[in-house]
Write a protein that binds this DNA or RNA. Sequence first.
DNA 1: ACACGTGTTATGCG
DNA 2: TCGCATAACACGTG
Length: 277
Amino acid sequence: MPELPEVESARAVIERAALGRTIADVDDTDTWECRPHAPGEIRDALLGRTLLAAHRRGKSMWLTTSGRDGERDEHEEGPHLGLHLGMSGRILVTAAADGGDESVGGDYAGRHADRRKEEWFRFTLRFEDGGSLRLLDPRRLGRVRLDPDLSGVGPDAGEIGREEFRTRIGRGTAPLKARLLDQSAIAGVGNLLADETLWQAGLSPQHRVDDLDEEQLDELRRVLRRCIRAAIRQGGVHTGEVIPHRRADGHCPRCGAAMVRGEVGGRTTWWCPVDQT
DNA sequence: ACACGTGTTATGCG
DNA sequence: TCGCATAACACGTG
């Protein structure tokens, strides 16, 4: 999926193309994507409201909505609409009734990148102007929720401060990569971003977190920030330097050693056995 | 047919 | 209860 950089691109698309538009209809009939909401529940909560802002923490997004005209809550805010792209989700926003002008966010270079089937659209906001915001999600691991609970989501991986990073990452006995992937520790790092960051930092994914000293943790945080910024700017985590070399015949682009494949933190992991210690 | 996967979460174990 | 590991989830692709 979409890791932090792809979700940020989706958020930016919504911010640029969907804010200020009023919701005239909602398709929330996919009971898996919208669970535990009953069909119509999200629809009833959103009809007549306007999208006010698009926020993100890690891979979680939420859109704030306005009160409804003429109702008691007119000057208050409506519910938040939580969106999670899962492993294959993308956001599509169309500008007008004819659907001629379309923006895509959460784009990624996976196998589903350019494919699109009507039945993969799992959720739709239809606006008064005839345009729409849709969630395209072939694998159906994404989520749409009203007022999502983000209490278990850690601070954003691109925003976290030095002190908090030290304590959230450096404590315990977990392998370093497993900790980076733990969304309750820090939010936004996925499998590819973790491999790229650890390669850039010269650290083994199997390194026990409490073996790292403060200097190493600080450096790791700097590298992670740099990888996130670069991925956002260049269009996704797949633009990382070591990502193309995560393959059976891959070699470290720095030293030329054969890349090693293993499983760390429950995910397929590739690293350079020479450079990463 | 079979294995794999850029994510999350319920369950199990020490 | 905590920290960590694993299975399960849904479904397209090679």
